[in-house]
Amino acid sequence: MPKVIFRLFSTFVVFVGVFILIQQYLKPDSFGKYGHYRANAINDAKLIPLQYKGEKECITCHQDIYDLKYSDLHDAVSCESCHIPKILATDACKTNPPKVEGSNEFCGQCHAINAGRLKKGPPQLDFKDHYEKQNCIDCHNSHAPWELKK
């Protein structure tokens, strides 16, 4: 074999060898365990802190409100649909409950009239005809909407 080819070929082999060596070294540990990805990334995805705790968590303190809600038409609506969790710890939730404004606009997110909403769904209102100047919760109990306040 001519010297040129030998020298170039060995340079090539050394290059590929070093490349593979580096590859072995820099490949993440769990890579390729289940597929072409870092298997540990599955666990990483589980580690995000919870914001929405679910109704079960709310019931531990607010069983009464839950029962009230369950007795009326908002039974299927989860607590956190309206009470967006701004506080992480449940303890803080006791002292500083996440308030809901109960304005026409807020309730209108579900109840404003819209041709895209099915008639059999939640009642739809044109707020111009329905006590425009007042907030919904001035008359309605938000947990039991058909329980009207005086």
Binding site: P2, K3, V4, I5, R7, L8, T11
Partner: peptide, 18 residues
């Protein structure tokens, strides 16, 4: 040059071929 210092015609021909 990677240490290949041949300047004869044979090596030039080989270079050309390769």
């Amino acid at each position: 040059t990677l240490g290949i210092n041949d300047t004869d015609e044979k090596s030039a021909k080989l270079d050309d071929k390769l």
